[in-house]
Amino acid sequence: MIKYFQGFSLEELFVKKSTGDNASFTETKEKLRRAKNKFIYYDKKILRRSHFNFIINFLGEEILILLLVKSTRSKVLSHFLISEKFSELKFARYSKGSYMFPLYRYNKKISPNHEVGDDEISREPNLKSEVLINITKGLKLMFVSDHEKSYPLEPGTYYSPLDILDYIYAVLHSPTYREKYKEFLKIDFPRVPYPKNQETFWQLVKLGGEIRQIHLLESPKVEQYITQYPINGNNEVTRKITKSSPGYVPDNETQGKVWINDEQYFDNVPLIAWEFYIGGYQPAQKWLKDRKGRQLEFDDILHYQKIIVALSETDRLMKEIDEIEII
Results as ranks from 00 to 15, higher is better:
Glu11Ile: 03
Asp21His: 14
Asn234Tyr: 14
Arg316Tyr: 09
Arg191Gly: 07
Lys96Thr: 13
Glu320Ala: 06
Ile308Met: 02
Lys31Glu: 15
Glu124Tyr: 04
Leu204Thr: 03
Asn37Met: 13
Phe58Thr: 02
Pro246Gly: 06
Asp21Glu: 13
Val237Tyr: 04
Asp119Gly: 08
Pro102Gly: 00
Asn268Lys: 15
Asp21Ser: 15
Pro152Lys: 09
Ser174Ile: 00
Trp202Lys: 07
Gly247Met: 02
Asp43Arg: 13
Trp274Glu: 09
Ala273Met: 02
Ile56Asp: 09
Leu132Met: 12
Val249Ala: 07
Val15Ile: 13
Tyr225Ala: 03
Ile56Ala: 10
Lys16Gly: 06
Leu77Tyr: 10
Phe25His: 13
Val76Asp: 14
Lys3Arg: 15
Tyr277Ala: 03
Glu183Gly: 05
Asn22Thr: 12
Ile231Gly: 00
Gln6Thr: 14
Ile241Ser: 12
Glu210Ala: 12
Gly293Glu: 01
Asp267Ala: 10
Asn261Leu: 08
Glu313Lys: 11
Lys243Ile: 11
Phe80Met: 01
Asp322Ala: 05
Pro246Trp: 02
Ser95Trp: 04
Lys289Phe: 02
Val237Lys: 08
Glu325Thr: 14
Ile56Met: 11
Gln305His: 01
Thr176Gly: 12
Asp290Gly: 00
Asp322His: 06
Asn268Arg: 14
Ile133Arg: 12
Glu154Thr: 05
Lys182Gln: 10
Thr254Arg: 12
Tyr277Pro: 00
Ala23Met: 05
Lys36Gly: 08
Tyr94Lys: 14
Thr242His: 05
Asn252Met: 07
Tyr248Arg: 03
Lys128Gln: 08
Glu62Pro: 11
Asn53Arg: 07
Lys109Val: 15
Asn126Tyr: 00
Glu320Lys: 13
Pro112Phe: 08
Glu218Cys: 02
Glu124Asp: 11
His173Tyr: 07
His147Lys: 06
Asp290Lys: 00
Ile135Thr: 04
Gln285Leu: 01
Ser111Phe: 08
Ile307Asp: 01
Gln203Cys: 08
Leu32Ser: 06
Ile214Lys: 00
Ile321Asn: 09
Gln305Lys: 07
Glu30Tyr: 14
Ile133Leu: 11
Ser95Glu: 03
Pro193Met: 08
Lys36Asp: 11
Leu216Pro: 02
Ile110Ala: 07
